[in-house]
Amino acid sequence: MSGRMIVDKAVKVVLFASAIISILIVLAIGFFIFRESLDAWAKIGISEMLFKSVWRPGQDQYGILAMIVGSVSVTFGAILMGVPLALGCAIFLAEIAPAGVQSIVRPAVQLLAGIPSVVYGLFGLVILVPMIRKLNVPGNSGFGLLASSIVLAVMILPTIASIAEDAIRAVPENYRQGSLALGATKWQTITKVVLPAGKSGIIAAIILGIGRALGETMAMIMVIGNSVIMPKPLTANPLTFFLSQARTLTGNIAVEINYATGLHANALFATGVVLFALIMIINASARWIITHDQRSSEKAR
């Protein structure tokens, strides 16, 4: 075996080791976070943690239901505002915008994705919160679900828009031609052929956007108020629900981990496990939708 052959073999081993690192990291993340949470599950109890909404570390009360509801509510609000805008933007970029306009809007979307979350948080803090505070509703502080949903909607917009645009562009051109040749208008072609054909990619884009929303941390801390209370309408008007303050799962971890000790720290890791599990389910379903669709369309070929 010549020298260069030995180098060749050695390189292969080193590269293989690097490829394995990602597996080790995933396993280590799962292992450490789960291990640190074990005491919490054992001493506090699973149902006590997941279904109680009182979080008072000083009195060893660790219910995270309010945070789960907070995370889900703010994500819901962000989806409500962000998805139509993002899908509209994706359709616009893929099907409607002339090349010149595309070359302005697409980098804008890209840049939106790159802006640090603390900058969005600061913008929300300085602009949105004072604006919302002007709404004359008793108990309204400006901080809360509305401000955080708006900030989050803008943050998930580029994620959803760019993945959905790719999905729409991946629809074969001959579907469009076939539809137009049958006397459909361009809009009919988009809604009746292109969007249904790109459906799985579009749904995956939305699901990944939801994952992104659930995982956002710092911007949420900055505008949501962080009170550990079950979000509820401030007045008889159910819409004031969105003026309620809240805390997200992510915010709970970030705000308290640096000084937490003992069971309190364990409970924060348990919060992490819940978040981790939620995100894994969401990402797995996105993957399932995409691969499932690929398989069924491959079968058709």
Binding site: F16, A19, I20, S22, I23, I25, V26, A28, I29, F32, I33, E36, L208, G211, L214, G215, E216, T217, T250, I253, A254, I257, L268, F269, G272, L275, F276, I279, M280, N283, R287
Partner: peptide, 30 residues
């Protein structure tokens, strides 16, 4: 090797989807 490669691809995809605060928690504990 085949299995390892499949798992590695899966792991990369999983890492890409994990929210940053979880990386923070992991870094904090480890």
């Amino acid at each position: 090797l085949r299995t390892m490669i499949n798992i590695a691809n899966f792991a990369v995809e999983t890492l890409a989807g994990i929210p940053s605060i979880i990386f923070g928690l992991f870094g904090y504990v480890l």
